[in-house]
């Protein structure tokens, strides 16, 4: 109002004096609002999970990443390297399908951090943080919602693999358990990326960091080649890499020769990741603002 032209002198109308139709409707809406009891932690988290699912539904294009990329990888690796590495594409498919499953789902986990970072720049987080709810609910809910994404990526890879002729000796049960194991591990891994998501300034920085960490971990594993073919120092790294452990356990479940030890190791590593990074994420989230 520092300039003049637009405001003719007496622009103040006595609106407060006469009740407009707006305020009547408003009064009705206002007076009918009774406060229900507060929701429990789980209910609040599930509501945030619902929010994530609605977003996928509104912008289904965001699933292209998690569906097309695995398809490309599976086709390229199988038909490009199959003959060279294993002597036949069919044999190599047996070897790498579980690995591509792991790779696809783990890459998807980076998006948990990207999405959180994007969210933090928006005003809606302020509202969430000013609500009387269990404070980690938005985070737990978001990561729960992301597991839907993981499940979609996993399903795409497995279905394509079966079409290409993957022989699942572990049966339907084994394949499903393998998918559950991978999705569960990715849930745990998500917490490391949500931590990164709260530390970085921009979504693209989160994405770059996430991929920079994941690429070596996935390629320097037993995903694509037998570790015994590697130089010994590298072989030692590959054998200590948790991604190798996950791939071994997944191969076991899908191929019908799983060992409780392999699975137990993966579950233990997932538990450690969650125990460290979930509380760290929550702490960073609380301190933000």
């Amino acid at each position: 109002m520092s300039t003049t032209q637009s405001s003719p002198a007496a622009s103040t109308s006595p609106e407060s004096a006469r009740p407009s139709s707006t305020s009547q409707a408003l009064n009705a809406a206002l007076s009918s609002a009774t406060r229900p009891p507060r929701p429990g932690p789980l209910s609040a988290a599930i509501t945030f999970g619902w929010r994530g699912m609605r977003k996928i539904r509104h912008v289904p294009e965001q699933l292209l990443d998690v569906t097309i990329t695995p398809v490309l990888f599976l086709l390229m690796f199988t038909y490009l390297f199959g003959g060279a590495v294993s002597g036949s594409t069919g044999e190599y498919l047996q070897y790498i399908l579980p690995a591509i499953l792991v790779q696809s789902v783990l890459f998807t986990a980076v998006y948990s951090g990207v999405a959180l970072n994007t969210d933090m720049t928006k005003g809606v987080v302020d509202r969430f943080r000013s609500l009387p709810i269990w404070r980690p609910a938005p985070l737990v809910g978001a990561v729960l919602g992301d597991t839907a994404r993981f499940a979609i990526a996993a399903t795409v890879v497995v279905l394509l693999g079966l079409v290409m002729g993957f022989d699942a000796s572990g049966g339907i049960g084994g394949v499903l358990l393998a998918m559950v194991l991978v999705v569960g591990f990715a849930f745990s891994l998500s917490w490391t990326f949500t931590t990164v998501g709260l530390l970085m300034r921009t979504p693209s920085a989160v994405m770059n960091t996430g991929f920079m960490v994941l690429f070596p971990l996935i390629f320097l594993s037993n995903a694509f080649v037998e570790p015994s073919t590697l130089p010994s120092a590298l072989e030692a790294f590959v054998n200590a890499n948790p991604v190798s452990h996950l791939i071994t356990a997944t191969r076991g479940l899908m191929g019908g020769d799983s060992s409780a030890g392999d699975i137990g190791l993966v579950l233990g590593e997932a538990a450690v990741m969650t125990a460290v990074f979930a509380p760290l994420t929550v702490r960073l989230y609380r301190g933000k603002g």
């Binding site: 229900p36 929701p39 929010r51 609605r54 509202r127 969430f128 609500l131 009387p132 609910a137």
Partner: peptide, 16 residues
Amino acid sequence: DLTGRENLILLGRLLG
């Protein structure tokens, strides 16, 4: 990224 209605439903549910 949600509709107006979804925004209000989300808050309603979060408030119990």
